[in-house]
Design a protein around this nucleic acid. Structure first.
Length: 576
DNA sequence: AAAAAAC
């Protein structure tokens, strides 16, 4: 039981020091055939933002040949055509000038609301029309931003005109800059504390669901803040404490925070939000989940400035979340880029049948034994499963395995992200904590080791690849137990231009009763698995791996068959 | 429908 608690807190099982020796051993023994099994890892350094980001808009040559799936490409092209037709037909966001000549997804954009400001397709236009400080435009250019993406072209003018906004745009299409650029432009200058227009205290607040994402947003802020003395605070216990000093507190410009951290600060009495004029909810649907909603409402209520501008952003916004969001906004404009709740066509998706949970590990090991594009992001459903899978991969000789979940210490989490950014992680095993917002430019492949629990989860997880116009690949394992949810995900895959085996689409829609039953089975399994993992017996675990490798033979047969079927059949026209 | 994440 104690072991289980340790595990839940995280890090206990995947102890770097403990396994360092093993890792080094494996490094040496495998160093000769390193180049043959694993492609050179792509790092952020190899793909700087400035080179890659706007390939998406410009129709450039960022395309990589990840596989020879020409059907996928053909399908994708058809989808793009459809989108263009839609765009013209609706005459929304159809650009006249300055539009990059593009053969890449020019996704349909719809903007609904009162007096929708005109979209602007160059940052220069934005500069002249809205009088954006030249320094900000310089920083933009220095950071490599050349051409606005769809959401930037439409969203930035809306926010610059101080309107409320609900923005829905696919993963990796530049949502962060869509709200940060107008934020800096609207704030105009750092708060000196003596400018009556600026008032006293923090003027802008960005909320995000995870520490890692808040950190990443903060980094983006710093790029735009170059050369001016902006006070931008990444909220933590430590930085919150510095705000006890009123002189510091009064001059803060922007705070980036997670909701609960903000609530804690409000309750401590060290922070007031009555001067906040810009409030952004990133990953809005996640922030409006029942667990976050009360906290978020509390923060929103504390932003009592009469002219506070509110904006919500996400790639997914289910109806119930959208209702809550729209009720929070004043005379909002709703912008949708592409198709809501749909992955980018750039991501080649497939489903792999693995029979049951014990067949997953051998399937993954086989996958990693063949050439692959590191880093690979592997999603699992719980923290203990993340820790133990990472450990088992290390024990099996996989190189540069990392693990990241919220049960790990702050430092462990920061180190894991840092290794990921440096390209040192080749296989990153993680939970939902990494599913949203995280932008690792090198990620080419995502594996859903555990089936995602919702369409939203699926869309965000696989959206860690295929960012900023690059192509990506996403594989989702499914077991017999996942059957009730298979069809829903299959339809999402189909809608975004990948193919799925015909038989999956013919599955009956499961009844609510059945789904509930399956949920219980899964939960019981998860508990059992956690208990099993709790027994930290390395020998036993090795036996388990051997055992599952023996089972692999059988397991891989159906898996291969599924894959082949998936390639052979194009059932796209039958989409619901 | 359920786990994860938030301090």
């Amino acid at each position: 039981m104690e072991a289980f608690h340790l595990l839940s807190r995280g890090g206990a099982l995947f102890d770097k020091k403990r396994f360092k020796k093993d890792v080094q051993l494996f490094d040496k023994s495998k160093s000769q055939d390193k180049g043959k099994g694993v492609a050179k890892p792509a790092t952020d350094g190899e793909l700087p933002t400035e080179l890659d980001f706007f390939k998406y808009a410009q129709g450039g040559s960022a395309k990589r040949k990840t596989d020879g799936d020409s059907q996928h490409k053909a399908k994708k092209a058809r989808l793009d055509e459809d989108m263009d037709v839609d765009e013209d037909a609706e005459n929304v966001g159809a650009p006249e000038e300055g539009e990059p000549s593009s053969s890449v997804p020019r996704q349909r954009v719809t903007a609904k609301g009162n007096n929708v400001p005109e979209a602007l397709y160059t940052f220069a236009e934005l500069g002249s029309k809205y009088n954006i400080p030249s320094r900000l435009l310089q920083n933009l250019e220095a950071s490599g931003y050349k051409q606005p993406t769809g959401i930037q072209a439409h969203g930035v003018p809306i926010l610059l005109e101080h309107r409320d906004l609900a923005a829905i745009s696919p993963t990796g299409t530049g949502k962060t800059l869509s709200y940060l650029l107008p934020l800096f432009a609207s704030l105009a200058a750092p708060n000196s504390g003596s400018n009556p227009e600026h008032g006293r205290g923090v003027r802008a607040l960005v909320l995000a669901p995870t520490r890692e994402l808040a950190h990443q947003i903060h980094n983006e802020c710093l790029k735009l803040a170059q050369g001016r003395k902006w006070r931008i605070v990444l909220f933590s216990k430590a930085t919150a404490a510095t705000l006890a000093d009123k002189n510091v507190r009064d001059k803060v410009d922007i705070i980036i925070s997670t909701p609960l951290r903000m609530v804690a600060a409000l309750q401590s009495g060290n922070l007031e939000l009555s001067n906040v004029r810009h409030l952004v909810l990133d990953e809005a649907d996640r922030m409006l989940d029942p667990e976050f909603l009360e906290q978020v409402r509390e923060v929103v209520a504390a932003c009592s400035h009469p002219r506070v501008q509110k904006a919500v952003f996400s790639a997914t916004l289910p109806a119930n979340a959208e209702k809550i969001a729209m009720d929070m906004l004043t005379d909002p404009i709703r912008v949708v880029v592409g198709l809501k709740d749909t992955p980018l066509p750039l991501i080649a998706q497939s489903l792999t049948y693995v029979h049951d949970d014990s067949s997953k590990l051998p399937t993954l090991l086989q996958y990693l034994a063949q050439p692959y594009n590191p880093p690979v992001l592997v999603f699992v459903s719980t923290q203990p499963r993340a820790s133990s899978l990472a450990e088992e991969l290390v024990l099996s000789g996989v190189q540069n395995v990392d693990c990241l979940h919220a049960g790990m210490s702050k430092k462990e989490r920061e180190d894991a992200v840092s290794r990921m950014r440096k390209g040192e992680s080749w296989v990153m095993v993680t939970t939902e904590v990494m599913a949203r917002g995280m932008d690792f430019k090198g990620v080419r492949e995502v594996i859903n080791y555990d089936f995602p629990q919702s369409v939203q989860s699926y869309v965000h997880r696989i959206g860690r690849t295929g960012r900023a116009g690059r192509e990506g690949k996403a594989v989702t394992y499914f077991t017999d137990e996942d059957a009730p949810f298979l069809k829903t995900i299959a339809n999402v895959i189909l809608q975004s231009g990948s193919t799925v085996p015909d038989w999956i689409l013919k599955l009956p829609k499961p009844s609510k009763m059945k789904r509930r039953e399956m949920g219980k089975v899964k939960r019981a399994d998860a508990v059992n698995a956690a208990r099993r993992i709790g027994r930290q017996d390395a020998i036993k675990k090795r036996d388990m791996i051997k055992g599952s490798q023996r089972r692999k033979e059988r397991a891989m047969q159906p898996a291969r068959r599924q894959r082949d079927e998936g390639k052979a059949s194009d059932v796209g026209e039958d989409a619901e």
